[in-house]
Design a protein around this nucleic acid. Structure first.
Length: 486
RNA sequence: UCCUCAGUAGCUCAGCUGGUUAGAGCAUCUGACUGUUAAUCAGAGGGUCACUGGUUCAAGUCCAGUCUGAGGAGCCA
């Protein structure tokens, strides 16, 4: 009975996104949504989240009770029945002339924090639970949804298996970053060993556990059975990073493919990025146009030389149509050494073969020299992880990073070391305990194969596509140091 | 974690070399108007000047510490 009623309510409702595509010929429709503004005691701008475009609802003068009209305040929720007609006003093609208005939920205008005006992103971050009701965040999170959907579609079309790697892990061997401990032990008085250290054998899992910093090692287990897998889930880093590009909780996509070399890996990563951007451009045109416009207005405050030369859509279009630049680390260092910036001593950090490139170096390559996404390959082994495949020269590994304009490293990947002897030798050099990773090494023990994979930070991708400057504005509930309110 | 900047009304901000009762625009409320597009016009209410301590006859203003936020750096995705 209850189910039937709910279905009935849904069937009657027309989403504004669909309504706006109809031909207005006086048809009778029901809409439900939240009030954005109420002008002139007569015109309701109604938004239901399906699109940024508000529906203009006309409440003809004299038809509705004064006490009802008083309740039509910013963000009150309404159910409206009316007829869809061509608009006699200028700002919109059609409007709904209300025959009945029901207030589903009141919104006290003295207390509701959002106003029909511009708010700073910093302020909206403080009311993250309500910011979805703004145009900017409406667009950002519809685009985020589309990108997530496109990711699954891309891999599904190519026969990849979506592998759910664990959120709680016991492995602390990879060293991808500081970890959040997971425990049920009492923190004021944990059980102790004789030497005074905490006795994790008495903890929930019988050992020390943490939130995952990467699903890659588990991903390799999948790849060496299914051939091609991908993970897409939350990842946690307890680093005290306070930047526009870091979160303590973020989402990562990590494909892992057997029978792929570095070149295959790069090809996949490049077509993957183009695919999901193309998907958003096709399905979220309106949102992207809104975000592009928002960005342009924001940049008006900047001096001429700091403004971007392209609009957001032009930038995305360009990325779609052009090949990413591919250079080796060694070539990248040469370019930096030859650069006017280096010769004029503009770099704060020195450049020489063997360094881990700094943000300023990556920015120079991507934003000044090539002016497009760049894939840098074959880094020195000293600055990369133990599992990356060693090149024949003994100096470099088959790594690749994709650097994007504006955000820097968006993808990090490599061909993995499939040769047992080389891998364990490197682990010993880097003091990584083999015993703890016996399960990982089993992939090399039993039918090892050449394989490769990469990790892509989802929020950085959403930043790139939406043009949002701060990563805290592209995840619904950002977790950063000293901040986990909602 | 380091460096720099900031915290004054619901929001965005002004407040000079310390000196009467701390201001503006927007928002809100009341009234007017009624085809408006962040409507318009008139009026009203609204403040622990982040917190703690100090200097001083006197602190929003100066000093110290703390907290929070932003930008940059490092770490990285």
């Amino acid at each position: 009975m209850r189910l039937f009623k709910e279905a009935n309510m849904i069937q009657k409702r027309t989403k504004i996104r669909e309504l706006l595509r109809m031909k207005p010929e006086g048809q009778s429709l029901t809409v439900m949504g939240w009030v954005r503004t109420f002008r002139n005691n007569q015109f309701i701008a109604l938004n239901d989240g399906s699109t940024n475009t508000n529906l203009q609802v006309v409440a003809p003068l004299g038809v509705f009770d004064e006490t009802l009209l008083k309740r039509i305040t910013t963000s009150a929720s309404l159910k409206i029945e009316g007829s869809l007609v061509p608009s006699s006003g200028k700002g919109q093609a059609m409007e709904l002339v209300a025959t009945s208005i029901e207030v589903l939920g009141d919104s006290d205008p003295e207390k509701y924090p959002l106003q029909p005006k511009k708010h700073s992103l910093e302020f909206l971050r403080e009311i993250a639970h309500l910011r979805f009701r703004t145009n900017t965040f409406g667009s950002v999170f519809r685009v985020r949804h589309s990108l997530a959907f496109a990711i699954h579609q891309f891999f599904n079309e190519r026969g990849f298996v979506y592998l759910h790697t664990p959120v709680i892990t016991a492995s602390d061997a990879e060293g991808a970053g500081e970890m959040f401990r997971v425990t049920t032990l009492p923190f004021d008085n944990p059980p102790r060993n004789e030497d005074g250290s905490v006795n994790f054998r008495e903890d929930f899992f019988g050992r020390a556990t943490n939130l995952t910093v990467s699903g890659q090692l588990e991903g390799e287990l999948g790849a060496t059975a299914f051939g091609e897998i991908y993970t897409f889930g939350p990842t946690f880093r307890a680093e005290n990073s306070n930047t526009t590009r870091h979160l303590a909780e973020f989402w990562m996509i990590e494909p892992e493919m057997a029978f792929y070399d570095l070149e295959d890996n790069m090809n996949l990563a490049e077509s993957f990025i183009k695919y999901i951007i193309g998907y958003a451009m096709e399905h979220n045109r309106e949102d992207l146009e809104f975000l592009a416009q928002r960005l342009q207005e924001e940049e008006k405050a900047l001096p001429q030389d700091k403004r971007s030369e392209w609009t957001l859509l032009e930038k995305l279009e360009f990325v779609l149509k052009n090949d990413f630049e591919r250079i080796t680390y060694t070539e990248a260092i040469d370019i930096l050494l030859q650069s006017p910036a280096y010769k004029k001593k503009k770099f704060q950090y020195d450049v020489k073969w063997g360094i881990d490139m700094q943000s300023e170096h990556e920015r120079y390559l991507v934003e000044k020299h090539f002016r497009k996404p760049v894939i840098v390959t074959n880094y020195p082994k000293e600055i990369k992880a133990f599992y990356m495949r060693q090149d024949d020269n003994g100096k470099t590994v088959a790594a690749m990073d994709i650097l994007a304009p504006g955000i820097g490293e968006i993808v990090g990947g490599s061909q993995r070391e499939e040769r047992m002897d080389k891998l364990t030798a490197r682990m010993r050099e880097m003091h990584i305990p083999e015993e703890e990773l016996y399960w990982y090494l089993d992939t090399r023990r039993f039918g090892t194969v050449p394989h490769a994979g990469f990790g892509l930070g989802f929020e950085r991708m959403v930043q790139f596509v939406t043009g949002m400057g701060n990563i805290r504005d592209v995840i619904p509930f950002p977790r950063t140091p000293k901040s986990a309110e909602f």
